[in-house]
Design a protein around this nucleic acid. Structure first.
Lengths: 216, 216
DNA sequence: AGAAAAACGAACAAAAACGAACAAATATTT
DNA sequence: AAATATTTGTTCGTTTTTGTTCGTTTTTCT
C-alpha cells in the first residue's frame, strides 16, 4: 500500500469517527504502530489532525470550541497551510498585530498553542475567535466595515499607535506583478500602514490567488 | 478508549443529565474510580464542570459566574420584551451607546427598524450582530473580557469619552434592595460610568432575576 | 451523637504508549 | 546492475496513564 493511500485511509476513518487509537489503526491498516505514529505526526504537521495520547482526533481538540469563521472551510486549504508556516515565527510572550483579513483569521489555530501571548486585532470576528480560544486579545475598535467585519478609522489607528508589537501578520486584496500591495479602501490601507510602522517583524500572508490583481 | 474520548463522554452524560456519580461513570465507561476522579479533576480545572462529593455537576454553583452563552438563553423572553419596551425611546438619526450585556444584545432586533442610527458598543458579539443587520456601528475596542466577550480598559473608555450619545442602554449583574447597581469587575463598572456621563438619556435594562443580588 | 458506609486523596506498582536508534526491506537513481 | 535514498519493522529505555491499596475525611444511618 502506498503511503499516501494509508494517509488517506487514516483521514477517512478520522472523519467518520472523530478519533482513533494508534493500536487500532495499526491493526486495521496492516502497519506497525511506529509507522502509524509517523503518519500521525506528519498529518498533524500538515494540519489535518491533532495528536493526542493514544491516537489522534480530527479538527483540533474536540472539547475546544472551533472558531466559526475558520470552521466553515476545509482543513488543509491554502490559508490554513500559510497560517501554519507563519506560526514558525511566533514565540512565547509575543505581542502580535493581526489585521482583519480572513487569512489572518486562520492564525487563531496556531496561536492557541502558545502561552502568554497578546494579540491586537482589527478583525471583529478574529477578536471573538481568539477570545473563545482563551487567547488574550485587544480589539482596536473603531468604525465597523460591514463588508469585511473589520474596524478602521482614527480610533482604530490611535489604538495601534499607542502600542508596539513584536510581529504583525497581515494580508491584502491584490499583489501586482511588480510586488506592490493593493486593497479596496483607503481606510484599510491606512490602518495597515500604521500596523507596519509599529511592529518589529512584518509577515505578509498571501496565496497565489492574490497575484496580478490590482486595486487601489 | 482514548482519554479524550472518555472526557467527551463524561461531558455528554453531564450535559444530558446535569449530574453524574463517580461510581456510575466508572462502570459505564469501563474505567476505575480513581481514573474517573482524575478526569473530573482535570475537567473541573478546565472549567467544564463542578466537582461535588460523589460526582460532578455541570454549569457550576449558582452563585458563581454563569458562562455568557448559557446566560443568553435563560430569561430569553424577558429580555426580548424589555428590549421592545426600551425601543420606544429610540428615534431616527440617534447616536446610541450599548454596553456588552446580553440584555443589551437583544436591542439589535428593534434597532434594525430604524434609519440612520449610529451605535457605539463595548460588546464584541453585539457589534457583529449589529453589523450583520446593516446597522452603522462603532466598537469601543479595548481588552477583551473572555467571560462575557465585552471590551473594557482605557482604550474603550477613551473611545466613549471622545463621543456624545443621545441614549445609553445598559445593564448590570445585580440590583441590591436599596437600588444600587452592582457588577463583577471594576473595569466594567468604570466603562459603564463613562457611558452614563457621556449620554443624554440613560435607560437601564433589567429583569427581576437581578433583584436582591449583590456583587461589587 | 456515634457507628457504619461511602468517597476521597496519596502513594505505588503494573500496563500501555511513546520516542529514538538501528537494521531490514523496498524504491529510486545513476 | 550497483549505489543510494526512502520507508518500514524491531528493540529498548523512558514517559504517561491506569488500577490497586492504603489511611483519612465526609456523609448517612441508627
Amino acid at each position: 500500500m502506498l503511503i499516501i493511500d494509508r494517509h488517506q485511509q487514516i483521514l477517512e476513518i478520522l472523519k467518520r469517527e472523530r478519533s482513533a487509537g494508534v493500536t487500532r489503526l495499526a491493526r486495521e491498516l496492516f502497519a506497525s504502530e511506529p509507522t502509524i505514529r509517523r503518519d500521525l505526526a506528519y498529518l498533524e504537521e500538515q494540519g489535518y489532525l491533532k495528536r493526542v495520547y493514544g491516537g489522534a482526533v480530527i479538527g483540533g481538540a474536540p472539547d475546544r470550541e472551533i472558531p466559526y469563521n475558520v470552521r466553515a472551510e476545509e482543513q488543509g486549504d491554502a490559508k490554513t497551510i500559510i497560517a501554519r508556516k507563519a506560526a514558525k515565527y511566533l514565540h512565547k510572550g509575543a505581542v502580535i498585530f493581526l489585521d482583519g483579513s480572513s487569512t489572518a483569521a486562520h492564525m487563531v489555530e496556531p496561536l492557541k498553542e502558545l502561552e502568554d501571548i497578546l494579540v491586537v486585532t482589527s478583525g471583529a470576528k478574529t477578536a471573538l475567535a481568539l477570545a473563545e480560544n482563551g487567547i488574550r486579545v485587544i480589539s482596536t475598535g473603531g468604525q465597523m466595515i460591514t463588508r469585511s467585519f473589520t474596524y478602521v478609522g482614527s480610533h482604530a489607528e490611535a489604538c495601534i499607535r499607542s502600542m508596539r508589537a513584536d510581529l504583525v501578520f497581515f494580508s491584502c486584496r491584490g499583489l501586482s506583478d511588480d510586488g506592490e500591495m493593493t486593497d479596496i479602501s483607503i481606510e484599510e490601507i491606512n490602518l495597515r500602514r500604521t500596523m507596519l510602522e509599529r511592529a518589529h517583524t512584518k509577515i505578509l500572508l498571501c496565496d497565489s490567488s492574490k497575484f496580478g490583481k490590482q486595486y487601489m
